[in-house]
Design a protein around this nucleic acid. Structure first.
Ligand code: ZN
Ligand code: ZN
Ligand code: ZN
Ligand code: ZN
Lengths: 164, 164
DNA sequence: AATGTTACGTTATAATGTAACATTTTCCAT
DNA sequence: ATGGAAAATGTTACATTATAACGTAACATT
């Protein structure tokens, strides 16, 4: 197993989040342009709302915020989320029924999530060692992997520090 | 990384499932006896229904089957499931919102699940290599793991064989 | 018997997610 | 440019999953 260097994927509490948001929105535009996909106003707005921070956002929370501008119904949100998921621009955190923006849409969509139970922040990593090991294990009993969900709950470094 | 031998954790389609059921129920009784816990008729019945096969069972499916005997409501099922989860006798498959009996309640409750999209069968493994790797990765950025969800979707050996 | 504790019953409702169909907008070939 | 197909959105209704709140029953301890 090779050494894959891993810097802390958690964002510090005082990072400049506006930059995260802008980067994500720009990357989404670029992605959709490149593939001839339509990042419509609704989709763009939903993506923006998913990216309001690094904690997962619930579909009905997004819906409430859409309603502030104009009357909307659940399918509006779920359609936009489905599109964004499909394109790897957001991920669903299954254990929370909530959605989070993808850091790195271009590099494939199989990631692992570390979720801080204290601050709610989620860190996404796409670690080749983990994926390799899962594939190796699956191979041992003839299982062919199509999709992977790895969601790890616990306490992030910042929250552990401040808890003492 | 040591070699952990891994036999196929999937049950073949024609295995003697009555035995799985009996073993699980006996293990549950033993566990509850040992810890002074009450495996009441409702809890026992719900466990039995969770174990009707090796595919995850939905709460409202269990509820429907309880209703055949007597009028029941959602809290009845969810309370029983909560108890059984707490004791590691069943697991919730988060990506399916469904429940499955635990093969091996005594050895801790952190497992990985391999889910066949074709036959619905779920295999549970408790692989130390996977857990070790996740802990190692988490440690690299100061994350303290409290809970782990690893749910892998794909096609089991039997279904792959018959698909050709 | 009185008390505390755990489990269960019951009703209502919250939270999450889809089906189905009508309407509008966009795209693109003529 | 323009008509028709395809894609996206609007709208209503509904399905599914889960919990809150409150009361009662069963069981154990004193
Ligand atoms: Zn940020
Ligand atoms: Zn934290
Ligand atoms: Zn079996
Ligand atoms: Zn299968």
């Amino acid at each position: 197993m090779q050494k894959n260097k891993l810097k802390n994927p958690f964002k510090s509490a005082n990072h400049k989040h506006k930059k995260c948001l802008q980067t994500a929105l720009a990357a989404a535009k670029k992605h959709c342009d490149a593939f001839g996909l339509r990042l419509t106003p609704i989709r763009y707005r939903v993506l923006e709302l998913v990216w309001q921070n690094h904690a997962p956002v619930k579909a009905y929370n997004i819906l409430d915020q859409l309603k502030l501008a104009k009357s909307s119904a659940p399918p509006t949100v779920y359609r936009a989320l489905d599109f964004l998921k499909e394109e790897g621009l957001v991920h669903k955190i299954e254990s929370l029924n909530a959605y989070i923006g993808c850091d790195n849409p271009q590099e494939g969509h199989k990631s692992q999530f570390f979720i801080c139970d204290d601050c709610g922040t989620v860190a996404e990593i796409a670690d080749p060692d983990i994926r390799y090991l899962l594939r190796k294990k699956a191979h041992q009993f003839g299982f062919k992997i199509k999709d992977e969900m790895v969601e790890i709950k616990g306490h992030c470094q910042e929250c552990r520090g401040s808890a003492e």
